[in-house]
Design a protein around this nucleic acid. Structure first.
Lengths: 131, 131
DNA sequence: CTGTATCCGATGGGATACTG
DNA sequence: CAGTATCCCATCGGATACAG
């Protein structure tokens, strides 16, 4: 499943420029590659989770950003929100079929970064020490 | 090359929490998934380019953000900067071996988004019209 | 428990001008 | 050509308080 930039150029939003400013691809790309978007999608990749579980799983996220991120991903059709009208409220979030397709392509990227990040940042402190 | 979240949990930065706040993986992930980081890496995926070419290829980027993005990606060891001491200056940017590995895992994600973004955003304007 | 509303500071990022 | 420096504002995003 290797893809080249040449092949991508046939797709909408591509031209002599890479992706035109404000085109649909860039908008969605900004949503899913946002600081919290990546982590929320990742958290949902192993199944359904409740609001509180997501809040704890995604270290450092504020309630405001969790709500905002979930709303955007839901509007994009990547996340499904299932609210049971009970007291107290019980709400479950899961990936849609589209969401699972997307996450399948995001996991290899995250895995590579997780495997290499420490070594990459080590280079930098090393370079800083030399100066 | 399918990866699951379960397998990821064995890697550095993962725990009961997904990725701890400020861990190396998150730092690098923020660099490469930043608004301009993705597009610059994408632009370099088909070979070496000069500063001016990148400026034109990445639609809408300012000089400030191009410089900043390139410096960060270079510090991470993903981009190589080759400056020829001529007048006028001639500087070429390319991906390192690490950068090519990373971009190989980013292209399928971008391809999927490019194929589906228009349909995804169509859902939203449709939903807005219904309200 | 699952959010929303508001305030406010930090950061991202554009425009412009300037330099070797 | 390939940047740097400065100014400035808009958006991001955290903290807190509150609500159904």
């Amino acid at each position: 499943m290797t893809v080249s930039l040449r092949e991508l150029r046939a797709l909408p939003g591509f031209s002599d420029k890479l992706l035109t400013d404000g085109c649909p691809t860039r908008v969605v790309l900004d949503h899913v590659t946002s600081k919290w978007g990546v982590l929320v999608l990742l958290a949902l990749s192993d199944g359904t989770h409740r609001w509180g579980e997501l809040r704890r799983a995604v270290d450092g996220i504020s309630e405001k950003m969790l709500a905002q991120t979930l709303r955007i991903l839901e509007a994009d059709g990547l996340v499904l929100r299932d609210a049971r009208p009970t007291i107290p409220p019980h709400v479950e979030y899961s990936l849609t079929a589209s969401g699972r397709e997307l996450v399948g392509r995001m996991l290899p990227l995250v895995e590579w970064v997780a495997r290499n990040a420490t070594r990459m940042l080590a280079r930098e402190t090393e370079a800083a020490a030399a100066s």
